[in-house]
Design a protein around this nucleic acid. Sequence first.
DNA 1: TGAAGTATATTCACTGGTGAGTATACTTGG
DNA 2: CCAAGTATACTCACCAGTGAATATACTTCA
Lengths: 195, 195
Amino acid sequence: MNKPAETARERILTAANKLFYAEGIRAVSLDTIAEKAGITKKTVYYHFKSKDDLIEAYLASRDQPNLKQFRKWFGEAEGELPDKVQAIFRQIAVSARHPKWKGCGFLRTAAELANMPGHPAMKVGAGHKKKFETWMREEFEAAGIGSAPDLARHIVLLLDGAFSTILVHRDPAYAEAAGEAARALVASARARQAT
Amino acid sequence: MNKPAETARERILTAANKLFYAEGIRAVSLDTIAEKAGITKKTVYYHFKSKDDLIEAYLASRDQPNLKQFRKWFGEAEGELPDKVQAIFRQIAVSARHPKWKGCGFLRTAAELANMPGHPAMKVGAGHKKKFETWMREEFEAAGIGSAPDLARHIVLLLDGAFSTILVHRDPAYAEAAGEAARALVASARARQAT
DNA sequence: TGAAGTATATTCACTGGTGAGTATACTTGG
DNA sequence: CCAAGTATACTCACCAGTGAATATACTTCA
């Protein structure tokens, strides 16, 4: 039971995921995706109305899995709040050591589509990042931190900074550094909670 | 004296700069660049041996101007060290409000070339970012901050995080937030200097 | 119940256009 | 003259998207 009766649509999305993430949006043609999915290009166009539509579906398919992964890393980490936040960055460093790691698919797609600000995929990307920020904010609020919105945003900045700099330098140490900074900011915000 | 006798090579680089930055690396063809430069594609190939070569030259041409801009923003800012660091982020927020702003050319190119880690342009990009980090470290060392290397890296992370998140959300407020976080980290590191 | 119709899903073969890169010939200043 | 620089005109591969046809399955009503 290798592939449990995947539908054509699923196979297309699976192939798009791998190829778009590995090579980039504009570097991958629908011919290549169709071939990898084992179907015809016309079938791709039956299930998705255009390449842009498929790009959007690709990002949408990563939204929940990615968030779930972050929640898991956070939830399963030992220690206090600062440690749990830091754990996210530690796990990113671990992921980034795998040779197939190519940064954050949302950020890379945003970079490629920077000339099309209204692109539907950009909205999906922005929504995804906003969900992460909201989740962080809620965690901080639950911990009684007064500056939760600001702190959440700072964590987001460090996270996306880590994704970007690791990609540029091919050095996961940047994730560790971001984790240290995040930890310090959370600890500092919590200390100020002696209200 | 509109164009003071620019050479063909300069015109090509000028056109490449505008187009690559505005549209992205893979979205722009050499035909388009040649047309914008007012010459033939063959002339482009006379001065640059391939598109990859031109991409590299494009990034290289941005290296010093960008660094100089950062130094200027830092140097001309009022106040103490934390304020001067924050000023860089404030100015990025200002830049990001211009409609033609499309993020950091180095980061966006790195995102597009993520599948070609050895690409010469990637080395130029990494070198540029490293120079920024080194410069920050030197400023912090000159100010007598003990954890200068770590702090410099944290600033870099916030900077590249700001570039990325502004691009995703089309919201310069992220640069202001990054500036606040940077300011706090610098101030905190300086306070610890009561050794 | 079963033939006719209809919706879903897929293929093959194609088009108009663009991409990077090149062979060859022209031009012009030293 | 001749070499650096530029142009015309080309190749060949690829790409997003389409036209026409087909197979399969699900309806519906005589």
